[in-house]
Design a protein around this nucleic acid. Structure first.
Lengths: 387, 387
DNA sequence: ATCAACAATGTACACGCGTACATTGTTACA
DNA sequence: TGTAACAATGTACGCGTGTACATTGTTGAT
C-alpha cells in the first residue's frame, strides 16, 4: 500500500517503519505514558535512565518524528522568522545584490539559532498590515527589508510596535520612531565617496542619488554635502541628479553628464549605488567619456558587478551580510529574554523616545569602507577639452 | 497593560480590540456555536445570510484572526512550500544570479497560490535526510535547488520519493530516477554556444566546464561536442578545462588560455557560466588578449553581469525565473490533484521507470536562447600572431 | 513508626481549529 | 396528513503536542 513496500530499490537506508508513528504508539511500545515520552524527548523533569532508554529505543524503532505543527500549537510559537520583501514592480528582488546579501546573513543566523525562514513577498494589492502576520502566529518575529518611508508604512510599523510584536528594520531608519533598526553609516559612506573624489583632484562633483523615501539616500546626501563643505566646495544644485537605483536610471543620465564633463562643469560623479553607477559608466563610455580618466566615478555598495566593469568601479563597501546576521541575532535574542512579553520592549523603548534620550534609540549602525578602484583614478592633467 | 493602551500615537488605525479574540469569543458575541463561526469563515456548508453577517460583524468587532498554527494542525497541512538550499562553503547562495532568479519565480508563484516559502539552508554537519522535513509536517512540498548528483543525495531523494513526498528538482536531472524535474535544454545551450563561435569563424574552441556532479554541466558538454561534430571539428581533450563555476576559477585559467590563444591553439572559448566567463574575460585582458577580437568568448546563463563587462559578454539565456515559477506551479498543482495520496505519484511514476518508458518521465525542459554580444565578435582577420 | 521530601510517572486537559454526526425546522410531494 | 428531503445549526471529538497536577514509591530524619 505504502510506497515503502516497494521492492528492491535502495536498501541503502533501512526504514523499519514507513508511516510516521505518533507519540501514542511510542508510549505503548515503550510501556509508558505519553507524558513520559514527551518528557524524555524534551529533556524535562527527572527521568529514570532505564525509562529514557526504553523510550528512545521505541522512538527509533517506530521512526518517530514529533509533529512540528502540533508542537507549535502547544508551545504557541512557530519557530519561524519572517522576512518581509517589498513589492517593487518588475524587479526581481532576490536578484538585487543588496537583498541577496542580507538574506544570506539572516538565513545563516536563523539556521544557527534553530529558526526557519519564512519569506513573505508583499502582495501589490492587499493593504499593508503586518499585524495580521503575527496574529496568525505564523512568525515569532519579523525582519523588514527594503521598506520605504511613506505614511502608510510608518503607520503599519507603528501599529506593529504598539502591538508589541518584535520586528527589525534593515538598512532603513525611521527618524523619531522607536523601531529596532540595523543600518550602515551611510552619512560616513557618502562622505567617504565624495572625499575620495576630492582627494583625487575633483572639484565639481555630481551626485546621482536614489529616492528620498530611503533613509540611506538622505544619509548619503548628507555625507556628500558634509564632504564638500569640509573642503570648502560650494554645493551646486545643478549637480544633483535623481535616479531609482536601477541600472537604466544610471544609464539615462549618461548623455547629460557626458556633456557636462566635456564642458568642464563636472569632473567627478558619486552614484548612490553600483547598479546606477554601472549603467552610468557604460553610458559615459558610449558617449566618449572614459571614467577614471576624463572624470572620476564612484559607486556605492561594492556589489559583485563593481569588479566586472572596465574600468573596475570604485565603491563603498557596505556589510550587508553582517547586517542581516545582526538583525536576526538581535531579534531572536530578544525573544528569549526574560521580559519576553510582547509588550515589554515596546513600552521600554517607548520611554526612551518619550523622554529626551536618543541614546537608547534601538539603532545599530555598522561601518562602511571605501574601496578605491580604477574608475576614480582620474588624472588631473587630462582635465577637460582633452577629447 | 497592553501596548495598545499607549497614548496618542497613531490614531491612524482604530483598533477596536488589541488582544486577539479566539473563535469562542466570536461565537459568543454572535450568539452562535463555534462550528458556525468556522463554517462562515471557511465558506463551508449552507449558512443563512443573516447568521453569516452576524458572525462576520462579530469577528470584525473582535478583530479576530484565525490561528494559522491551529488550522495547520487541524487540516494536517502546513501551507508551506519548502525550498532547500545546498550548503556550499564560503558561497552566499542568495547572491548567485541563478538562485536569485529561481527563488523569485518560486516566490511569486507560491504567493499567488497562497503558500508561504520556507527557506531551508542545509546545514553542513547534519546528515542529509529530507524525509524528516516532511515528517515534521513543516512543509507540504519541497523544491530542491542546486543539488548535486552524489550517491548520498541520490539516496536521500529516493527515500523521499519512496515515501511519496512531493518534491521537485530544478536545473538538475537525475538520470534513471523518476524524480519530478524542471530543467532547461542545456544540450541545446551548449550546442548554441559552440555553434555560435563556429559561425563566427572559430575552429579551435576551448570549453571551460563546471563540475560533472551537475547534470547541466554534462549536458552542455554534450551540446558542445555535438556542435563540433556537426561541423566536422575534432574534439581535442587538451581544450577541455574544468572550473567550479566561480569567477575565480575562470580567472585562474586566464594565463593558460591567453597563452593558447597567442600560440594559435585556441580561437574561441565557451564557458559554462557567466561568472567563470567574466573572471576569464578579465584575466584574458590582463594578459593582453582582447575577447571579441583576439578570440571569441561566450558565457552561459545571461546573468546581469554579462552586460557589465567590456566588451559585453555573449551568453546563453536560461529562463531561471520561469523555471522557478513552473516548478512551484507543478508541485502545488499536484498537491490538489484528486489522487493526492502521498503515495500515488510515486507508484505511478515508478511504473514508468520499471517499464520501458522514458516518455512519461516527469521532466520538463525549457528552451534556452543565444544572446550574442561583443565578446564573441572576433574578426577572423586578426587570427593569431597579431599581438 | 511516622511523616516530610523528593524522584518518577500517570492522568487530564488545553492549545484553536476542522468536521462528522446529530438535531431541529421547513418544504414538497405523495 | 404523513414523510422524505433538505437547509441550518449545534454537539462532540480529533489533530499531536506540552504540562499542571495527582499519584505512587522510596528515602531519610525524627
Amino acid at each position: 500500500m505504502f510506497a515503502c513496500t516497494a521492492p528492491g530499490l535502495s536498501a541503502q537506508t533501512k526504514v523499519e517503519e514507513c508511516n510516521i508513528g505518533s507519540r501514542k504508539e511510542v508510549a505503548k511500545l515503550a510501556g509508558v505514558s505519553e507524558a513520559t515520552v514527551s518528557r524524555v524527548l524534551n529533556g524535562v523533569g527527572p527521568i529514570r535512565e532505564e525509562t529514557k532508554l526504553k523510550v528512545l529505543e521505541a522512538a527509533r524503532q517506530l521512526n518517530y518524528v514529533p509533529n512540528v505543527l502540533a508542537q507549535q500549537l502547544a508551545r504557541r510559537r512557530s519557530g519561524n522568522l519572517g522576512v518581509i520583501l517589498p513589492y517593487v514592480p518588475k524587479v526581481k528582488l532576490f536578484s538585487a545584490y543588496y537583498f541577496a546579501e542580507i538574506l544570506s546573513g539572516i538565513g545563516e543566523t536563523a539556521r544557527r539559532m534553530g529558526y526557519d525562514l519564512l519569506i513573505i513577498p508583499l502582495s501589490p494589492v492587499e493593504a499593508r498590515s503586518y499585524t495580521n502576520l503575527f496574529q496568525t502566529q505564523k512568525v515569532d518575529a519579523c525582519i523588514m527589508l527594503g521598506s520605504q518611508d511613506t505614511a502608510e508604512e510608518r503607520g503599519a510599523l507603528r501599529q506593529l510596535h504598539e502591538g508589541g510584536y518584535p520586528f527589525c528594520l534593515v538598512n532603513q531608519r525611521f527618524d523619531d520612531e522607536p523601531f529596532k533598526t540595523i543600518e550602515a553609516d551611510h552619512v560616513k559612506g557618502g562622505q567617504l565617496a565624495a572625499s575620495h573624489l576630492i582627494g583625487r583632484g575633483c572639484r565639481r562633483i555630481a551626485f546621482l542619488n536614489g529616492p528620498d523615501a530611503y533613509s540611506n539616500s538622505r544619509d548619503r546626501m548628507k555625507g556628500y554635502s558634509l564632504a564638500l563643505q569640509k573642503h570648502g566646495i560650494a554645493m551646486d544644485n545643478e549637480l544633483l541628479y535623481r535616479g531609482n537605483y536601477s541600472r537604466t536610471s544610471g544609464y539615462q543620465y549618461a548623455e547629460q553628464l557626458a556633456e557636462a564633463v566635456r564642458a568642464g562643469r563636472v569632473d567627478g560623479i558619486v552614484a548612490a549605488n553600483d547598479r546606477m553607477a554601472i549603467g552610468l559608466l557604460q553610458g559615459l563610455r558610449e558617449h566618449g567619456i572614459e571614467p577614471g580618466k576624463d572624470a572620476a566615478l564612484i559607486g556605492y555598495d561594492d556589489a559583485d558587478g563593481a569588479r566586472f566593469t572596465e574600468p573596475q568601479l570604485s565603491s563603498v563597501a557596505v556589510p550587508f551580510y553582517e547586517m542581516g546576521e545582526q538583525a536576526a541575532q538581535w531579534l531572536l535574542d530578544s525573544l528569549s529574554e526574560p521580559g519576553a512579553q510582547p509588550d515589554s520592549s515596546a513600552s521600554a523603548e517607548g520611554q526612551s523616545v518619550q523622554g529626551a534620550g536618543d541614546a537608547v534609540r534601538p539603532v545599530i549602525q555598522l561601518p562602511v569602507r571605501l574601496v578605491p578602484r580604477a574608475s576614480s583614478l582620474r588624472y588631473p592633467d587630462l582635465e577637460s577639452g582633452q577629447l
